[in-house]
Design a protein around this nucleic acid. Structure first.
Lengths: 331, 331
DNA sequence: TCCGCCAATGATAGCGCTGTCATTCCGGAT
DNA sequence: ATCCGGAATGACAGCGCTATCATTGGCGGA
């Protein structure tokens, strides 16, 4: 039974290994961290001792003594069904080979929880923090500034970042979609999705561009964070003929509503009674029919870039990974 | 600039706070961990001092001294586009309020990497390990057994688990799908998807049941881990009229291939030239047309249950969260 | 009055490692 | 023979906290 109370046998320590190998503790430590400093035969003896005892170094102690935790804190709004998972995967793939641990926390779009988990993260002394977006509160921002570690804000391009940035221009994404829809001669616009900072920025770009183009003012429908909510969104948007969804899940949900209403064609975009553009470029969007037009963003690259930003202080501290308008059949 | 080199100002320590508040270090420690042991006015003074200095407790030091890291290691094959994200979210939601940190690692379905990250996780002295599946190698299993901490294997029901289990019967899922498809009078069966242990167990249940039913031996097509690979799977499966996909993404990809081939109807299951059953019950499956029949599993509940299993030693150490065959229009 | 008890606070000794500064030993240069 | 330098190893202190065991002072009961 692998339980502390049933087998209180403590994990072997560095000095247990040292005793067995007949060397000092520091030599064992060197075998673990800088083996080339130890003579081959000594090293072999130590390695044998480690294997015999099943020694697993205690990084907690190492971190305290060495002031390097080899960990980064990662804060996302949510990880399930979320494009942020790509970012977490990307940064984790980049960081793991270097021996960094990823401490993952979710804010669930809740400012109070964000502040709580931020200080919980910080109490583990990560060497850097990577987060989606910017801190929701000034308290959170202060906490991060005082921490004295690299902080990467992602999925946005905040004008006054705490430190580094890896993201794209959400406003410009809204602009691009609006321009495309105007060029398509659509008349009656709506934006559906959440009301988090990034979605709001997309909405702003969308709305401003339509206004400048002299189009009718678009409507904005704030929906739950799951796609199913958007299935019935159509009922709230009479007369709409062009919809920008804050993400692909909402877009697909909305299309499902359109299908029920008989407003979906299998033909190309111009035959669609209602144009739908998503954001995220989920694989699903390519597979459904009609295929989903969308803003493709680079979640994985954002994660990898963020990882590189925390590993080096050189080079630009603000990386714009961009986006692309991918036109398929839905709009 | 929040960089160590530009502002070498070290983080304030417990005793810095103690000095400022005019108490001993241990009293500050108590204010942080067991405030009710400290007189209200002392507590107030200490809290003021903490605020003034922006004190963030150092959990690394605390863990070393107290032998409680308040962290759990979580190992998943992959987190992007993955139903395992639900499980991570579930356990994280359960664990975070209790002050536990989630250290996340990915194996990417690679046994060597799994062993590496397992020992990296263990070196951080988590209080428990939660992983999808069982260790791929005997080395990994030994590592976990020797660690002397709770280990929860999930998404499966291994006959001889290391410790605890929260999952469902993948074999039975294959059986259920096969029985349904046989009852539908399908003739020509195939299984598509990955070849990881869980997918293989589903395949075994599927194949065995078809064999017992006297049906033609099913084919098995091993595909890449992304849905797009399954779009062209049809070409490899001439004459097939019933497909069980190891997960919904593959199912939807395959349906996309069927659509191109003109083999998808908008009507109910019996009108489909080729029946398709997925696994996972992604939201998308409900939204597409025809809607996807699938095995619903409870990824979130698996995560929450796993979290509870690591928090208590009481009660059953093996929880079967079950699954349900959800019949919609695809098969 | 004295004792005992509890609430509040403190002193001390590590936790398991690593940074820093020795120390030892040896071969080759002088 | 002497000295020097580098390779290999070790001693020691201390990272920032907590477990454990005092210590203090006040109060009610015998």
């Amino acid at each position: 039974m692998p339980f502390p109370d049933s087998e209180p046998q403590a994990a072997p320590t560095l000095s247990a290994v040292a005793d067995l190998a007949g060397v000092s503790a520091i030599t064992v430590s060197r075998v673990v961290r800088v083996p080339e400093l130890v003579a081959p035969q000594t090293r072999a003896r130590v390695e044998a001792a480690m294997r015999e005892l099943g020694y697993v170094p205690n990084q907690i102690a190492g971190s305290l003594a060495g002031a390097r935790t080899k960990s980064v804190g990662v804060l996302v709004p949510t990880i399930a069904n979320s494009i942020f998972a790509d970012t977490v995967q990307g940064l984790s793939d980049e960081l793991e080979p270097l021996g960094y641990a990823v401490i993952l926390a979710q804010s669930r779009y809740d400012a109070a929880r964000e502040d709580r988990v931020l200080s919980a993260l910080l109490s583990r002394r990560p060497e850097a923090i990577i987060m989606v977006g910017s801190p929701a509160t000034e308290d959170g921002a202060r906490l991060l500034r005082r921490a004295g570690i690299p902080v990467v804000e992602t999925w946005e391009l905040p004008p006054e970042p705490i430190d580094a940035v890896a993201g794209f221009d959400n406003y410009a994404a809204g602009v691009a979609v609006a321009q495309h829809l105007v060029a398509q001669r659509r008349q009656n616009f709506a934006f559906i999705g959440g009301d988090d900072p990034r979605a709001t920025r997309r909405w702003n770009g969308f709305r401003d561009t339509l206004r400048e183009a002299g189009a009718a003012a678009p409507r904005r429908l704030v929906l739950d964070r799951n796609a199913s909510g958007s299935v019935v969104a159509l009922a709230e948007l009479p007369g709409v003929d062009a919809v920008f969804a804050a993400n692909d899940a909402h877009a697909i949900g909305f299309m499902s509503g359109l299908r029920k209403a008989g407003l979906l064609r299998n033909g190309p975009a111009r035959e669609q009674p209602v144009a739908v553009i998503g954001l995220g470029d989920l694989e699903m969007g390519r597979l459904i029919s009609p295929s989903l037009s969308t803003i493709r963003v680079h979640g994985d690259a954002i994660g990898r870039t963020a990882a590189r930003l925390v590993l080096t202080h050189e080079g630009p501290r603000r990386v714009d990974l961009g986006f692309e308008l991918v036109l398929r059949d839905s709009g």
